[in-house]
């Protein structure tokens, strides 16, 4: 029984991280994905902030899932989510003021981030607390990984560096469109192609093994 629980915890976690990756498969949370991914550091911190909110809100909504009346569930979710967003916002203002200044209003906008709503509605409201935590962690880290990857590519071409480290040679002229929203769309589209190609390749390999 314990083993089974453990395996379902891991499978739910992996589902969020890879199979149903919020950015590349579910295409949720596009607003921060396009808005803040101009530098790798922004991607990581935005992702982690979202993960924190997601795990906590999933846990609390799961605990309250039998108490919250169906008709007012959305306002109830918002109250839960907004509390955690306020916490992380105040935390960042106190300890990471520079990062907070860069991410700006996107931190507050986590309240209406559709990943968090989608997971609350479709997972936490129907599943026990432990699994909901696994889902929150998986989805949150999946989101973090994808937007970090995205922002690394954008930072490389848009500023010639990754995590502030200069990669491109001295004479490289930054491709300014990468720092703007169109560059975000283009990079996201190209990475989605790449992810789909890898997935197709992987599933073909799997079938070959089975056959």
């Amino acid at each position: 029984m314990a083993d089974q629980k453990k395996s379902s915890f891991i499978s739910v976690f992996l589902n969020g991280l890879i199979t149903e990756n919020p950015t590349f498969t579910l295409m949720l949370g596009m607003c921060p994905t396009l808005g803040v991914t101009t530098a790798a550091m922004n991607g990581v911190s935005m992702g982690l902030a979202t993960t924190f909110v997601l795990v906590c809100s999933n846990l609390f909504i799961s605990l309250l899932r039998n108490i919250i009346p169906d008709k007012v569930r959305i306002p109830a979710y918002i109250v839960v989510i907004a509390s955690f967003v306020t916490m992380i916002d105040l935390f960042m203002q106190a300890f990471l003021p520079e990062l907070r200044a860069v991410l700006g209003t996107y931190i507050q906008l986590i309240v209406v981030n559709c990943i968090i709503f989608a997971r609350a509605e479709s997972f936490a409201a129907k599943n026990p607390p432990l699994l909901s935590i696994a889902d929150g962690l998986g989805m949150g880290l999946g989101f973090t990984c994808s937007i970090t990857l995205l922002s690394m590519v954008r930072e490389l071409f848009g500023s010639g560096s990754i995590f502030g480290l200069r990669i491109m040679p001295e004479g490289y002229l930054p491709m300014a469109i990468m720092n703007q929203v169109p560059g975000g769309f283009i990079t996201l589209g190209l990475m989605m192609i790449l992810v789909n190609v890898i997935k197709k390749y992987a599933s073909a390999r799997k079938e070959e093994k089975l056959a």
Binding site: L173, M175, A176, I177, M178, Q180, P182
Partner: peptide
């Protein structure tokens, strides 16, 4: 348009 937005100076 992409080139213009990216390397406006050139």
């Amino acid at each position: 348009a992409v080139l213009f937005v990216s390397w406006g100076g050139l």
